[in-house]
Design a protein around this nucleic acid. Structure first.
Lengths: 177, 177
DNA sequence: CAAGACGGAGAACGTGCGTTCTCCGTCACT
DNA sequence: AGTGACGGAGAACGCACGTTCTCCGTCTTG
């Protein structure tokens, strides 16, 4: 197994474990066991846990936004499709809310790289919505609905929060024209 | 110092420290130091850290909702006053987002009492908004806006997220009638 | 004053975990 | 075959922290 495959396996294991149980609750030994990569190589690829966490967040950001973008684009870039995608996500087994919001809660004073990854994710999502919706104010309003629905779906376990947000988004888009 | 004053001091210290730095980042020794209560008595009042965390959340829920209710009531129970209150909160020094969302992120599998306290808070806030707004669907939509604005204000540090949510709420309330 | 319950300060214990070290087998190269 | 670099398995180390224990002074009560 070469070094690039090792990092791939490590990121895969890290994402599964960190998202499912929280970053702090998962030890480096659990990542090693799940990935099948030895501790020595783990620390060659990621000199400290913080580095692995940062890479996990950056990768999850890319994949999460990629999945959303693809889904919405296949529906003619209809802003309301965002909420259909959300509902699917909320209903997935193992859904535990937004990894970035959860990480923000976990780390009172996050390492700079981790804080930057969290902010970057939110900035990118906001920029994506602004590109999707005519009118920056409306886009930002939809963004708040997306975040609120995600948080509430995670805490209550009810994927229907996506429908509530969708109805609100429909009204806001109609009002904007 | 009797036992009831000790629990008061402990809860005060716990709230300050847990909210500011996160629950996991604060040791029982820090609570002892801040409160001036000895470890022995601390463990008499709260047999385990989980008990203190649960009490912290329950107390914060009461105070947070009390402050919101009072502010909004003084403004004729105008639903939009909720967002004015939010903006004040977001602008407070030391604002770090919603304690309950943060705790949800901190504990991948929270102790039952903690999970219940988190859900209770969100249920109570939702019920409060439903009492404030004619139309349950609209109330739930405002709730999503409140949660989204809180999360975004915490991550971006921008209290203006409250204004964005307020504009959206105004449109939704007008559409509802 | 004597005796014992109470409370505080802080040491001590056990555990978990991030990180590093040790040891040993394996493979490439001469 | 001999040798030396490499990699894996897992022990070891250091530290932080939740929880408990020890010791000692104080205050109440007869």
């Amino acid at each position: 197994m070469d070094s690039t495959e090792a990092t791939g396996r490590l990121l895969e294991a890290a994402e599964d474990l960190f998202y499912a149980h929280g970053v702090q609750a998962v030890g480096m030994d659990a990542v090693r066991e799940r990935s099948g990569v030895s501790l020595k190589r783990l620390y060659q690829c990621f000199p400290a846990k913080n580095d692995l966490v940062e890479a996990y967040l950056l990768r999850r950001d890319e994949r999460w936004r990629g999945s959303l973008r693809e889904f919405v684009h296949a529906r003619g870039d209809d802003p309301l499709a965002v909420f259909a995608w959300l509902k699917n996500w909320f209903a997935e087994p193992g859904f535990r809310g937004c990894a970035f919001i959860n990480s923000f809660g976990e780390f009172g004073e996050p390492a700079p790289g981790i804080a930057a990854a969290i902010r970057k994710h939110k900035d990118e999502v906001r920029a994506y919505l602004r590109g999707l919706v005519p009118g920056q104010d409306t886009a930002d309003q939809l963004f708040a609905l997306v975040e609120g629905a995600t948080v509430l779906a995670a805490i209550t376990g009810n994927p229907g929060e996506a429908d509530t947000a969708r109805e609100a988004a429909k009204v806001l888009l109609a009002a904007q024209g």
